[in-house]
Design a protein around this nucleic acid. Structure first.
Lengths: 193, 193
DNA sequence: AAATTATTCAACACTACGTCTATTATCTTA
DNA sequence: TAAGATAATAGACGTAGTGTTGAATAATTT
């Protein structure tokens, strides 16, 4: 792909990449990435197989590019809001926005963030919030080793909650989910007794 | 495989299955199950490819059989101990035993329970403990919907903690880990402030 | 309108798959 | 321990997807 004078990309390239992305997402609804062949992606997208290899090395490469695209999109989305500096509610606010984003982009998200998707990617999404909490937690004078285990627990735990939320049709509101997650992280079961 | 009169299995079958299991575990240390071929499993095990197909449909079938074997083994292991009826410490005790089991069988466990392994299986392992807590939790009059989210959070969170523990060489004692996990689940961050 | 380049088409060798048959080696049991 | 049973092997088979190539075609940019 040559770099054009005006910096834009060739319309043909845009189209090719778009249909290939759509095609993969469709297939991911049915089966795991590892069972998806280049051949079927191309057939569904009506794109020549040689063209696929001109842009991606394999289906997983295509998936990874969809993921990073989504990650950037979420960050842009969050940048559009101004959150309070106050540590206490900041995390909840950001989390709420993330749940809203997921709900608005349910088509893609319900595939990429479901059990079928890539866990590592999902943890990246959840880490966006947790990064905001690091200073907050260390301020609370938690032992450093323990703090790291808390991160793991909270992040992977959150991924599990999002899975369940998506699987069951996103019945709870983003606000509810955000509050629930923060409560679980901060006070565990005792918060709900 | 014919059923023999004394109920035992043919030595040849035992051997074949054993080396195939070992072979797959070795390969899983290097790469994900989806990138492992029947061909290379057999070459490493020095077993004919046709023989593989006589016992398993594909590498994933073999993996699943290793997993259920481990699961049975853990349950047998736990059955060897008598835990107190007292709800408060029962979960901690069981969890401690599980961490001990993992440490003692680090060879297999550090593969099957690592990030490379199957999440669904890992959740099954963690569910052994959580099952013991259900009555405990509902006793505490937690809302039922919320309780389910708590399960998801706690179970997937625990998986994350185990990952980290294994990845960093199991420095903490099983007792420490068990206590930490129960604390996180019950009281969240507030337990460590 | 001309130059550029992305896409297509067809063919290529390669690798793994899953199955089959005949043969050999090993185990069980009487 | 000998006879019968059966598990494992060797080798070949067609199938399917891979990743690459070169020439022809179509669309886009300038």
């Amino acid at each position: 792909m040559r770099v054009m004078k005006n910096g834009k990309t060739d319309r043909r390239v845009k189209y090719t990449k778009m249909v290939l992305r759509e095609s993969l997402v469709k297939l991911l609804k049915q089966k795991h990435i590892t069972n998806i062949t280049v051949k079927e992606i191309c057939e569904l997208a009506d794109i020549n197989r040689a063209t696929f290899y001109a842009h991606y090395t394999d289906p997983y490469d295509l998936l990874r590019q969809i993921e990073t695209g989504l990650l950037n999109d979420i960050n842009e989305y969050l940048a559009g809001f101004s959150f309070s500096i106050d540590d206490g509610s900041r995390s909840v606010q950001i989390l709420e926005k993330i749940f809203e984003y997921i709900k608005e982009n349910a088509e893609v998200c319900s595939v990429l963030l479901s059990d079928k998707g890539d866990i590592a990617f999902q943890q990246e999404v959840m880490m966006i919030v947790q990064k905001q909490c690091i200073s907050e937690w260390t301020k609370k004078s938690v032992n450093k080793d323990v703090a790291e285990y808390l991160y793991s627990f909270a992040i992977t735990g959150s991924v599990g909650v999002v899975h369940k939320w998506l699987k069951e049709g996103m019945k709870q509101s983003p606000r509810e989910m955000a509050a629930m997650l923060i409560n679980m992280t901060n006070r565990g079961i005792s918060a709900f007794v």
